[in-house]
Design a protein around this nucleic acid. Structure first.
Lengths: 115, 115
DNA sequence: TTATCATATAACAATTTACTTATATAAGCA
DNA sequence: TGCTTATATAAGTAAATTGTTATATGATAA
């Protein structure tokens, strides 16, 4: 049994709802190992750029990710200060790595653009 | 790092969506420690009986709980055979116990009816 | 400054969700 | 048998979600 603090059920439900979407869950798993920018997500998920922005905004509003502007690009990464960081990490461990998506980008030469 | 098998991201997202609702998440936390029947949930959540039935059906369809008929009552409990059992248990550990709801029922004398 | 690129926001539409009330089913009991 | 109780299903509805296209913002580069 781990030592772990509890969180309110309502706030946990909110986090789980955020993660209960295939696109956002895959984003989080990707971010667990890599910073990503919006343009990469657009390529990976094959949805419009606004759709990606709306997903990352939800994750940001929920405190799960943070953004860092690098010139004209905005990179997203896991927010380790989140109240739910530990819970989310535990959860993500159960998911298979999503590096295949990044490798596919690389092979298309699309990973370089925001570097 | 725990030894743990991974599950498909799509199927994990589905489970997390089921848990991403305050009512269902509280139900699961209650079930972690107790069997409950529909009539108890009706009292606890102050929603209609059909609303409760619809929530437990979603949890059952997702394989997270199982039902046992006991006379005219149907008792629900955690399905330990679920592919997502381990993930769900880990998750529930982060939540505070919900026994207060059962104690409240008891004090109203409503816990006895389905025994 | 103006053009371009990355991202965000606004407005809208289709779909899904979470309730409700009304009704059906299934077990227990007089 | 017929009545009551527990639960499920059906049908309808309001609100939330997730996408779209159009447009705004903000940084860079000519």
């Amino acid at each position: 049994m781990n030592k772990q603090s509890t969180v309110e059920i309502e706030s946990a439900a909110h986090v789980l709802k955020l993660l209960g979407d295939k696109t956002r869950l895959t984003m989080m798993k990707l971010l667990q190992a890599n910073e990503c920018c919006v343009c990469e997500f657009v390529e990976i998920f094959e949805i419009s750029q606004p759709a990606v922005s709306q997903h990352v905004r939800k994750l940001r509003d929920g405190g799960l990710v943070k953004e860092t502007r690098r010139g004209q690009w905005i990179h997203y990464s896991i927010n380790e200060e989140s109240q739910h960081y530990e819970l989310v990490q535990q959860l993500l461990h159960y998911l298979p790595g999503q590096e295949k998506h990044l490798e596919e980008l690389q092979s298309k030469g699309l990973r370089i653009i925001c570097k």
